[in-house]
Amino acid sequence: MSDEPVSEDSEKPKAEAKAEKPARPARKEPETPTAPVMLDERGEALSGVLPKVFSDFEIEYSAAMDEVVAIVKPKDIPEVCRIAKEDERLNFDYLRSISVVDYEERLEVNYHLFSLENRHKMVIKTSVSPDDPHVPTATGVWRGADWHEREGHDLFGVVFDDHPNLKPLVLYEGFEGFPGRKSFPFHEYEEW
């Protein structure tokens, strides 16, 4: 989130709004515009299948741009991931990345999955509190999750429980704080 106040809004809003393409939302709206959801046919099919596959779990479904989103409870992560990988209808064998996003009141862990077989993609999201972030590891499902989780632990302090080797990866031993979080300051220095 930008911490500076928005200053460009006041300048000539009319002329600029004219120059813009009509497809883009008008800028003068009080709330910020939201990116449209545009699932392709594979995404539509997947969002139909998902509730059947994960009928045992408490999962919220939504979509972000062209990806199906499943919001999962942290404790369900290993099981949901395992099913996502092993179920033939899903077959998510390829873990694109694990990204942690700091929304200040919560840390969101995103598992971006892709299926090389079925050629569809989805995101599994889970939210934890920043004070005590614990998510069970997914290294048992995809071996590639190892470094992604270590990086998430390094930069955001998310503890991936049962991870075999949660040592610092990109930071050195003894680094204080979690630099990926919004509360971590940038290095500032003054002109002299």
Binding site: P25, A35, A64, K121
Partner: peptide, 21 residues
């Protein structure tokens, strides 16, 4: 000023699947 939301993109860089979230 992109609208609120999130996008994941995949491209093929010389080393492989270069993604931006």
């Amino acid at each position: 000023r992109p609208p609120k939301g999130e996008a994941f993109i995949r491209t093929e860089s010389p080393r492989g699947d270069f993604g931006v979230f």
